[in-house]
Design a protein around this nucleic acid. Structure first.
Lengths: 229, 229
DNA sequence: CAAATAAGTGTCATTTGTACATTTATTAAT
DNA sequence: ATTAATAAATGTACAAATGACACTTATTTG
């Protein structure tokens, strides 16, 4: 059958929002945009969807090309399509987002586009509607964190309860009660206590824990980790 | 500046998923597709995005054209873009969904595309990937219903507690305890008891309630009714 | 006035959430 | 060796929310 007649066609882009945790704070990964307009400005990792790839695959390819990051589980967030969002011509952008452990992916990160991690409170001005995208992702991150243990994705293999609390405090931007937090964290029985301690941040040291992956995967399988969609 | 060189362009479509409640069950609105391929088959309300409209406006226009429904608050769900999802040519589809009170919109509904309401358990085979879209929307509906009082969107101005319970039972597909349900429903202080009763479904009759719109809007403003995005 | 129908309501036990202060293990300095 | 400093670890009591459960009430119809 012939193509749809009289239908306008548009470039479809992907933008990737990568949140990361470095043990004390949640940060956002940005790069310098590689082409005009706004070449060199701070930007999300973006590119155009190619002809034979799915949206998910396209997002993975683009992230890999621009940052070197691979095997990052990203979730589709929302599509932006205001007629004037891109000054060059109308484009649609399907936004993806992910949460990673910064240190885990440190080695993968390539330097081509001079990527940089920014604390959530120090995000610079971004091109186009990228700031709106990030705001939306931050909000979604909070909501998801409330209803699922999604934030474990941000942690290294071994982590301490204080680090975990720190992560939640960073996401929600508020102080949490030590005692109540650790009671709740441990009550889920998802955490396994290890024998060794993290000694860098206190004299006493804090015991490491790891995630019980079996239980985690059973109760929150990958497709559901980030919730519904 | 010149348009992006060497970038492929695609039609961008919208598909609208409309859930409705008729007082006893949640249903899905479908129409007969108006053009080839698959002309005449059961389909979501879909069409192509036009050049000057936003995605939200496009969704509203398409819904109006195909069904007559106006002023329905729809939320963007997810974008589908597998290369082969449409046999004619590659298209992307941004999916929207909404919840309405079937009776409230009864008069608006036009007959051009022979629209029909289907109980969730009796949804017919749909074109393309529309069934997947509906499954996703059902799931999202459940999750949203758990975390926000979204379901009030499905009710008429006046409704009874048993109707409300019935709605939740329909969405979650399970029986809920009468006593606990009404305690919880009333505890929010979002419901205002009226003087008259609904007498159709019992001899005793059930008091009508209405939503306290001020409180509802204060705590769950339109942008947030459906949650985050 | 009896029967039928679905609405409406209360209690108790359990779980969950919240507020709050002291003790403990370890290191570094004297 | 003793002390000071640091941040980790832990418990209790009260309030609020949840879940399980059965009887009474208002109304209509025969």
């Amino acid at each position: 059958m012939k193509k749809y007649p009289e239908v306008k066609r548009y470039p479809v882009a992907i933008d990737c929002i990568i949140f990361g945790f470095d043990g004390s704070e949640v940060k956002l990964l940005l790069i310098h945009r590689g082409f005009d307009p706004q070449k060199g400005k701070w930007s999300l990792m973006g590119g155009f969807v190619e002809d034979t790839e799915s949206l998910d695959n396209s997002a993975a390819r683009i992230l890999k090309n621009l940052t070197g990051l691979e095997n990052v589980y990203m979730e589709q967030l929302l599509t932006f399509g205001n007629p004037n969002r891109d000054p060059v011509e109308r484009t649609f952008s399907v936004v993806y987002f992910a949460l990673i452990d910064i240190h885990k992916y440190e080695a993968q990160l390539t330097d081509n586009y001079r990527p940089q991690w920014f604390a959530l409170k120090e995000i610079p001005k971004l091109i186009f509607d990228h700031s709106t995208m990030v705001d939306l992702a931050k909000e979604k991150l909070r909501v998801k964190a409330t209803h699922s243990p999604i934030l474990f994705e941000l942690l290294p293999e071994k982590f301490t309860i204080p680090q975990l609390r720190c992560l939640y405090e960073s996401v929600f931007d508020k102080a949490l009660d030590k005692r109540n937090f650790s009671r709740k964290a441990l009550s889920g029985e998802l955490l396994v206590k290890l024998k060794d301690k993290e000694k860098a941040s206190s004299k006493k040291g804090a015991f490491y824990f790891r995630l019980d992956k079996k239980k985690y995967n059973t109760h929150f399988n990958p497709a559901n980790v980030f919730g519904v969609s």
